[in-house]
C-alpha cells in the first residue's frame, strides 16, 4: 500500500517526527518510511525542521557509566573500576540502577564544577565562628548545576565535629511538609543518613559521630523525604542535590 496524498504524507511525517504519532500507527508508518522514498523525504524534512529545537536545551553530561557500557557492548572493554553488576540495565528490566552507584561514578565528572563550587561555598559559609580543626565545604547541586545546599564540616571547640547545612534553594517539586535529608555515599555500600533539615528551616547544625567516614565519602547527596526523614534508613524520595566535600 502506498500513501498517495502529498498533504497526508506531510501531516503524518510531522506527527511522526514530533512524536505525537504513537502506538500501532507509528509502527505502521515506519513501514511506509522503509518502503517509500517520498515518505522518507517528508520525514527527513520534518527532522531538519524540528530536531534543532533540541539544541535549545542546556547540555547535560551523561554519567560516565553510559560510555563504559557502550564500550563494553561494542568492543568488549571491561572497566576494572566498574562494579561487577553494570549500573546500566536494559530498559525492559524493571530494576533501575541504585542511584548511589550512579552517583559515585557521576562524581568523577562533576569535579569540573569544583572551582566555582568552592569559591561559592566559601563565600556562603565563612560566617561561623573560627574553628580549631580542618574545615571542609561542599556545595550540593542539582542536575543543571544550580546550588541547592551548602555544607560545612567543622570541629567545634569541644572537639566534636559538626556539619552545618544551609538550604540555598528548596527543590521546586517539594511539598510543604517534606524535609530535605542529607546523605553520605561511601565508595562502596549504601548511603548513610547525616540528618534532616526540618520543613521551614533553612539551616541546621548536625552532630557528626564519625568524621573520617564522612571524609571518605565518594559523594554527598540530598533527597526529599517525608516529615522526620526517610522511614527506611535509605533514601525514599528523589535525590535532588549532590556534591562532594573539599578542603578550604
Amino acid at each position: 500500500m502506498r500513501l498517495r496524498d502529498e498533504d497526508l504524507i506531510d501531516r503524518l511525517a510531522a506527527d511522526y517526527v514530533l512524536g505525537t504519532m504513537r502506538g500501532r500507527a507509528r509502527a505502521r508508518f515506519e513501514r511506509h518510511v522503509a518502503d517509500d522514498a517520498r515518505v522518507r523525504g517528508a520525514v527527513a524534512d520534518w527532522q531538519e525542521r524540528l530536531l534543532p529545537l533540541a539544541s535549545s536545551l542546556p547540555e547535560e553530561a551523561p554519567p560516565p557509566a553510559v560510555w563504559t557500557a557502550i564500550e563494553g557492548r561494542l568492543f568488549g572493554v571491561v572497566k576494572q573500576s566498574a562494579p561487577a553488576a553494570s549500573p546500566i540495565r536494559r530498559p525492559g528490566m524493571a530494576t533501575a540502577a541504585r542511584w548511589w552507584e550512579r552517583l559515585a561514578l557521576w562524581q568523577s565528572v562533576a569535579a569540573f564544577a569544583t572551582v566555582a563550587a568552592i569559591a561559592f561555598g566559601v563565600a556562603l559559609l565563612r560566617q561561623g565562628p573560627p574553628t580549631a580543626g580542618d574545615i571542609r565545604v561542599a556545595l550540593l547541586q542539582d542536575a543543571t548545576g544550580q546550588a541547592g545546599v551548602a555544607l560545612r564540616l567543622e570541629r567545634a571547640t569541644d572537639g566534636s565535629d559538626v556539619l552545618v547545612a544551609r538550604v540555598l534553594r528548596r527543590p521546586e517539586a517539594m511539598g510543604p511538609d517534606r524535609v530535605i535529608e542529607l546523605w553520605a555515599v561511601p565508595p562502596a555500600g549504601a548511603p548513610r543518613s547525616l540528618g534532616v533539615v526540618q520543613a521551614g528551616a533553612d539551616a541546621v547544625r548536625l552532630p557528626v559521630r564519625d568524621a573520617s567516614a564522612l571524609l571518605a565519602a565518594a559523594a554527598l547527596a540530598a533527597s526529599i523525604e517525608p516529615p522526620g526523614g526517610s522511614p527506611t534508613g535509605a533514601p525514599t524520595g528523589p535525590v535532588v542535590y549532590q556534591g562532594a566535600l573539599y578542603p578550604i
Binding site: 547540555e59 560516565p64 560510555w67 572497566k79 562524581q107 569535579a111 565508595p187 565518594a218
Partner: peptide, 21 residues
C-alpha cells in the same frame, strides 16, 4: 576523588565552558 575515571573519551562537559550549538 574516586578512581572510577572512565578511559579515553568521556569527561563530557569538561571541555565546553560556553554553550555551543
Amino acid at each position: 576523588m574516586i578512581d572510577a575515571h572512565p578511559s579515553t573519551p568521556p569527561a563530557p562537559g569538561t571541555q565546553s565552558t560556553a554553550p555551543v550549538d
